[in-house]
Design a protein around this nucleic acid. Sequence first.
DNA 1: CAACCAATCTTGACAGTGTCAAATTCTGTT
DNA 2: AACAGAATTTGACACTGTCAAGATTGGTTG
Lengths: 213, 213
Amino acid sequence: MKISEDKSITHKSNYHHGDLRQSLLDATRLMIREGGVEAVSLRKLADRVGVSRTAAYHYFKDKNILLCTLAEEGFYLWQNKIENISLGDDYKNLLPAARYRAFIYWYLTYAMENSEYYDLMFGRAIWKQKTATDSLKKIAYEVFQKHVEMTKICQQEGILPIAEDSLRLAQVSWGTLHGLARLLIDGIYTEGNHLDDMCDCAANILMQNGKIK
Amino acid sequence: MKISEDKSITHKSNYHHGDLRQSLLDATRLMIREGGVEAVSLRKLADRVGVSRTAAYHYFKDKNILLCTLAEEGFYLWQNKIENISLGDDYKNLLPAARYRAFIYWYLTYAMENSEYYDLMFGRAIWKQKTATDSLKKIAYEVFQKHVEMTKICQQEGILPIAEDSLRLAQVSWGTLHGLARLLIDGIYTEGNHLDDMCDCAANILMQNGKIK
DNA sequence: CAACCAATCTTGACAGTGTCAAATTCTGTT
DNA sequence: AACAGAATTTGACACTGTCAAGATTGGTTG
């Protein structure tokens, strides 16, 4: 009795929330940040946004679709980041090698500062099986293509070995970035780490210690 | 009525299962392989082993403990693998560079062939938060220490750059392996891949194309 | 042999979870 | 003012992890 009365009172004003869709996405991000992807519960999510259990189903067919949508957001954010960075004069005026090092730095920084996105973008849960949305696959593919192009340019600039196949080189370099990101995010074997030193080391290795020209 | 009768009949003979503990671990492995870590359900697990819902709780305090135990198994298996490999004459007689390449090959092969272990060993679910068992942390740490030692030796042998800090170099090289393993397991950006070529490329990059001596 | 003990396993129960179908409530248009 | 359709809620179901209490067993003792 009392409970149902309370609820109706509470919800009456929320019947049209305004921007529930985005609110749900934002709240999900928060939940992931607090307790990891596994801690996301549609019901707690609804509670947090001040809406009833199944309200989210009007905007997202599935829990999975919700997470895929969020992952997409993550890819777009990253896409914007690298676009902004590469347009900046600070970045443009750097020598190729320094630019490559900066890219590594931004990649790892993005992964750490937006770990809730990063986990969705490359967490197994979404990629394995056929759970990934088509639009998610598309943007992810685009982002990787950009990385391949960048790799090619670096090869032509002489900071990456020209002998290697571009695609494979892109896979290896991206693998390195991804592996380091995971190490940093999960805190495995990385106690007392200095991000800068790790970037230096990774850049040195990938660029062959600058011994190629 | 019928149901409860059936159940009592079914279970009566299973009251002492024999090696329930290991059966549970094995069945869990299978479930992970089939549907990923997320598809592991203690109840389905119990069904599969032919035992009642909560039987597992006698051997594992938690679902989490079960998964941690399995992850440990994975580390021990890997430890054995590298021990066997490094004792073999085939391996011993290789030149340092070829040995390093072989190590990469075995790492990626292990990850792909035992992806259910690998996901547990380095999947976020276990490492994030304080869910990891002490014994799991211990064996994981040991395994990484071994990698650091190997890195040092490689530096002394001249196939890895001596100028870099060993720990950081170990992090980067391990990051590369881990990143590639994830790419291969999840099938991201790796359609039509030849494992051998990827190993070659990774080895070339990490070893500076053999230009150091 | 009987009786007991401790290990092993089961049943019952509860709070959470994702999701569907059917109501309910609201907003804008005619 | 009435209605259409969008937005949200309630009810319901099957499934999950886990706890507490009970049932079953094999091995050990008297």
